[in-house]
Amino acid sequence: MSTAKRGKVRVERGRYRLDGQFHFPYPNDPIRNEDGVLMGITNPRDLTHIHMYGGEAPFFEGLGQGKLLGTRCDNQNCDANGSIFIPFRIHCPDCLGKNTIVDMTETAQKGATVHTFMITERTGAFNTLPKPIRFVNVEFEGVPTILMGYLSVGEPEIGMKVVPIFNTTKPSYTILDLSWVPEGTNESDIPEGFTFG
């Protein structure tokens, strides 16, 4: 690995300002068979993408502040008027109007239920969650959609009441900043860095 500084980005006056290195080249290695015949090469690379959250940025910022934000269609001429969307949808899927951001933290704290779940020891490359991972798909009172997340304490069951916890101490600004624990879990039992919001 090169000792060059890994790239960081900020936006100034609508433009990206880059600092550091965004890709790290490595030499190719030959791949040979047992007879020493050249079959191919390895193609190593290490690069950093620059990814914008756009209109979803408030959601990911909110997690680090202990808030679960959803959105609501307030277009009175739309069949979906009043529908709340978690996952956060910037635009209503029916009328395509701009949704209103709503704070769903309290709703989630009062009435979140596990709709389904799964437990796996297997992960793809780049996984950072501790294994086994316990996915929970969480239903909220009055919300037609069902949010996927992960359970940090206990064993999941369909119908189980859960509450959100947030990585407010050192947020990653990803969906991993939101996790779930069974209702009634003590603060001392939740993962380091997480709070109830």
Partner: peptide
């Protein structure tokens, strides 16, 4: 598996284990 998981939503799903089977398995469980 990470590449396949990139076919899930990259902000809302892929970071969760980078494993497509998992996104499927919740349906299977139900």
């Amino acid at each position: 598996n990470n590449y396949i998981a990139s076919a899930a939503d990259k902000d809302w799903e892929t970071p969760l284990g980078h494993i497509y089977t998992g996104y499927y398995a919740v349906m299977a469980q139900k």
